[in-house]
Design a protein around this nucleic acid. Structure first.
Length: 884
RNA sequence: GGACGCGUAGCUCAGCGGGAGAGCACCUCGUUGACAUCGAGGGGGUCGCUGGUUCGAUCCCAGCCGCGUCCACCA
């Protein structure tokens, strides 16, 4: 006996264990010739906790993988985690600080890295446990970590190969430097934030003192590193000064006035101070004019010995203040404006990023981008929704070199060794590097490995093939690469998707995915980003505890249609929890009424109109859900199931079946029991990918005698002939009739318990047949005391139109005649308006001539229907008047 | 500055060339043996504005207004 409600707490733990133990998560259990279907998980940060975005993203992946698994494919969902260089290192450093332990630099590299591994061993698995709570049917036996041995080999292989192909190189140029983390970061990791600031105008005197030139800056401290002032060659105000020089205030260094296209004469004074070592634009100007590049910062962005003694050791912001003060005291301050401008920040540390001149490793992304662009252009990989393709192209076509070295300790150490003379040996191992060095030098020389590690995204870029065993040609790699679908957030389209496309194509020759599905970002009910500080975070684990995993999953699926933002509220989840309860109760109904699956039952054999009808509705739902999931239109699948299960099966099929199930027609009863059990089975199967727990639980009762687990049951297929247009029309008529009576009763305030007689006027033979078949049912659902056929409606009866016939509810004594008159008048007005609109359309010769025939025909029918219905109600209204 | 997206019922959103939809909220009624985490019924919308294309526009095009996101800018 099923419990009154679904105890999801107990079921979730139990069922997940059973699935895992059954081997269902492994593609190896599928038939040997089964078509492969694979998904690689976007690896969550190993430090992370499951947040609502993961819940969305992983639910969709699980829906797909369960769907394809049920379709009989060898479905692999490959899980794993990312070492997340900066994030993890920061986290462990914070923990060390909080515990009062010595810092990273005092501990030394080896001890620190060991400490991170310890931390990973202790709590790094939290998120994979949390994925299990979400019901994720990943193949845990294939779980990978970006720093594990196999993936590290892949990383070294890729680095060395790209280096030999000259697609990785070392270069000294300006990078985005994070002075807090003390590392370079890539362009993508820089986030522009609007801040209040100032715009200062400084006068730089000509070195002969005859004039001054005014420049402006938001970063006054950089003037200590100025090596020129640039003006536009066509700028008449400055033409005569080009080639002369100014004396840089405070520093006293003479610097040239140069002509360059870069300054915009329209902006400010038209003259620009040039600080080649600390500004990306100035760097380019400096290169063009071979200007000295004076680096004035140390790695923590304090001023170094390149500046006058009074400034050395000052923090950049202290220096800024002091420069302004000194300029002012020298009488050279020519103005200050308050501004609000964008300032680059490190997205992880939040520190203001400085352009900084260092040696770093770069990937020639431009060269790799070509094939990645082509793969999307020619459709080998589809980005869904398609609108993301233009974003992808835009970025890929303007791609810049990718700075991949990081001055961190947690990550893949760069496989490069320096000889005593600075020569670099890039090899896959230290032994290989030594061999190469021996060959080069002709003797053994000491080698020093590059201290830096690789950008985390370098290893994640290899994820679709490194996790399958590459560079070894493993059976998994051969079977499951390329993967089928990647489901991920659009916020990492550049970081991750683009890089996987480039790396995958370069190293395997094949695009790593057939499709990439971008899911939306989840916001709170007001549309604000969820953040801990705002306190508007919805924790998926808490939601699972409160509403059950299926409710959360159904919510995620149903709302996944939104392209960019999903506004999530508890109320919404509650609604979908109720949907699960509805299904549960339908199953209880089946149980109470002994609707048990019948072995060998074929819905095609059903004879009852009701059962032929639900068979067709089921067929339509199977088609709709299958098609939607095929297209990754997850929300469409959820909506189709919600409607079918609630509004078709529960609202009508169950209600309509009741008289049969409690009646005496044994054959009809047996058929209906079997059909109902079968319908429920179809619901369970179709809903399983989205709501795996409740469906699996009910499958235990309704799967049939020797049914295995639902997770590996076969996906439904509908057969030709299940849709029966006769049955559909008959049920539509019946439902319309019941709806009409119910509506009139409610609107005219007939007491719910009162039973009224119904008279059908002008019923055709077909209608009489239908009535004969369903009389008891209609009486029950519409709460009628009886149904009669007549040539004319009785006086004072309340009329309505049902097909060719007029229905009349003889309830005059029960209702308010005034209310009824109003109801009729309103109905007539609506019909009149519709008739008028349609008639006008049909009177338009152009419409009749140019519109497709079926549209014209449809409008003719509509007009006829409206007019005949209107006529019937009008005559009824007249009779009502004569009575009243 | 460039690109993309969004403005449809009180709220969140579907629909995207031929009769305006769903869920929630709201109102009325309801203890008929699946279900009050429910049932029955109902009210509520010049589909942002202005033009254009079309026999016909919520849907296509242009412009405008409002909102959002990403990229670029930061002398």
């Amino acid at each position: 006996m099923l419990d009154k409600t679904f105890d999801f707490h107990a079921a979730e733990t139990d069922l997940y264990k059973r699935w895992e133990a059954s081997g269902a998560f492994s593609p190896d259990r599928a038939a040997p010739d089964a078509e492969p279907f694979s998904i690689v998980i976007p690896p969550p940060n190993v430090t992370g906790a499951l947040h609502i975005g993961h819940a969305l993203n992983n639910t969709l992946q699980d829906v797909l993988i369960r769907f394809e698994r049920m379709r009989g494919k060898a479905a692999l969902w490959l899980p794993g985690t990312d070492h997340a260089g900066i994030a993890t290192q920061m986290m462990v450093e914070r923990q060390l600080a909080a515990a009062g332990n010595m810092g990273r630099r005092d501990m030394g590299r080896e001890a620190f890295v060991e400490r991170v591994w310890e931390w990973k061993a202790e709590s790094g698995g939290a998120i994979v446990q949390q994925l299990r709570r979400l019901g994720a049917s990943c193949d845990w036996s294939r779980e990978r970590f970006t720093l594990d041995e196999g993936l590290s080999n892949a990383v070294r292989k890729v680095f060395v190969t790209l280096h030999k192909q000259k697609l990785i190189y070392r270069d000294k140029r300006l990078v985005n430097w994070d002075p807090v983390m003390q590392t370079a970061i890539s362009d993508l990791e820089v986030e522009q934030r609007e801040v209040d600031g100032h715009f200062w105008h400084f006068a730089y005197p000509l070195d002969d003192g005859t004039a001054e030139i005014v420049v402006a800056t938001t970063r006054p401290e950089t003037m200590l590193g100025d090596t020129a002032v640039a003006v536009h060659p066509s700028d008449e105000r400055y033409k005569h000064l080009i080639g002369r020089s100014v004396r840089l205030p405070i520093v006293g260094r003479p610097i040239p006035i140069i002509a360059d296209e870069y300054p915009d004469p329209e902006k400010g004074s038209g003259a620009v101070k040039i600080t080649p070592a600390h500004d990306f634009n100035d760097f380019r100007v400096g290169q063009r004019h071979r200007l000295p590049m004076i680096n004035i910062f140390d790695p923590t962005a304090r001023l170094n010995d390149e500046v006058p003694p009074a400034y050395r050791g000052l923090d950049r912001f202290e220096a800024r203040k002091k420069v302004v003060e000194e300029i002012e005291s020298l009488g050279l301050l020519r103005g200050v404006e308050r501004t609000r401008h964008a300032v680059p920040h490190g997205e992880r540390s939040g520190a203001v990023v400085e352009p900084y001149l260092t040696d770093q490793w770069y990937v020639d992304a431009k060269a790799l981008a070509g094939p990645a662009i082509a793969a999307v252009e020619d459709g080998r990989t589809a980005l869904l929704p398609r609108t993301w393709e233009s974003t992808y192209f835009e970025w890929m076509r303007n791609i810049e070199p990718w700075c991949i070295s990081r001055q961190l300790w947690w990550g893949h150490r760069i496989p490069a060794w320096f000889g005593p003379d600075g020569r670099i040996f890039v090899e896959e191992s230290e032994e290989a590097a030594r061999a190469a060095a021996l060959e080069h030098y002709g003797r053994t020389e000491p080698l020093r490995q590059d201290e830096d590690v690789l950008d985390t995204w370098f290893s994640s870029g290899l994820w679709p093939f490194s996790t399958l065993g590459w560079p070894e040609q493993t059976p998994d790699l051969q079977r499951f690469y390329p993967t089928d679908t990647l489901v991920t957030g659009f916020d990492i389209i550049f970081y991750w998707v683009a890089r996987m496309m480039m790396m995958g194509l370069h190293f395997t020759g094949k695009a790593p995915f057939r499709r990439v599905v971008f899911n939306a970002l989840i916001r709170d009910a007001q549309g604000a980003k969820m953040s801990k500080t705002k306190g508007n975070v919805l924790d998926p684990l808490e939601l699972i505890d409160d509403y059950g995993c299926d409710a959360l999953r159904f919510t995620m699926t149903a709302m996944s249609g939104q392209a960019r933002d999903i506004r999530l509220s508890r109320q919404r989840i509650e609604g979908y929890r109720n949907f699960g309860t509805k299904l549960w109760n339908a199953a209880r109904f089946c149980e109470v009424n002994e609707c048990r699956p019948v072995a060998g039952f074929d819905p095609a054999d059903a004879r009852q109109t009701l059962n032929r009808w639900i068979r067709g509705e089921t067929a339509r739902t199977i088609a709709a859900v299958t098609d939607a999931l095929d297209r990754c239109a997850f929300a469409e699948a959820a909506t189709a199931l919600y409607r079918f299960i609630w509004n078709v099966v529960c609202d009508w099929y169950v209600e309509l079946a009741k008289p049969i199930l409690t009646g005496d027609d044994a054959a009809a009863k047996a058929e209906t029991r079997a059909t109902m059990a079968w319908t429920l089975q179809m619901c369970l199967k179709l809903l399983h990918p989205i709501s795996p727990f409740i469906t699996e639980q009910l499958w235990g009762e309704f799967g049939g005698a020797d049914a295995g687990l639902l997770i590996t049951a076969a996906w439904p297929k509908s057969a030709d002939g299940w849709i029966d247009v006769e049955a559909d029309a008959e049920m539509a008529w019946l439902i319309a009739l019941v709806d009409q009576v119910r509506s009139i009763r409610a609107e005219t305030n007939v007491p719910p318990k009162a039973r009224a007689p119904l008279v059908l006027v002008g019923a055709s033979a077909a209608t009489r047949d239908r009535l004969a078949r369903h009389r008891a049912l209609i009486e029950r659902l519409a709460r009628l005391s009886g149904i009669e056929l007549a040539d004319a409606a009785p006086a004072g009866a309340v009329p309505f139109v049902i097909g060719e016939a007029t229905g009349a509810l003889a309830i005059a004594q029960l209702i308010d005649i005034g209310a009824e008159r109003a109801r009729l008048a309103k109905e007539i007005a609506t019909l009149a308006a519709e008739a008028e609109r349609t008639a006008k359309k049909l009177a338009n010769a152009d419409f009749v001539a140019r519109a497709p025939e079926e549209v014209v025909e449809e409008n003719r029918d509509r007009l006829a229907d409206a007019e005949s219905a209107k006529a019937k109600l009008e005559s009824a209204l007249e009779r009502l008047e004569s009575v009243g």
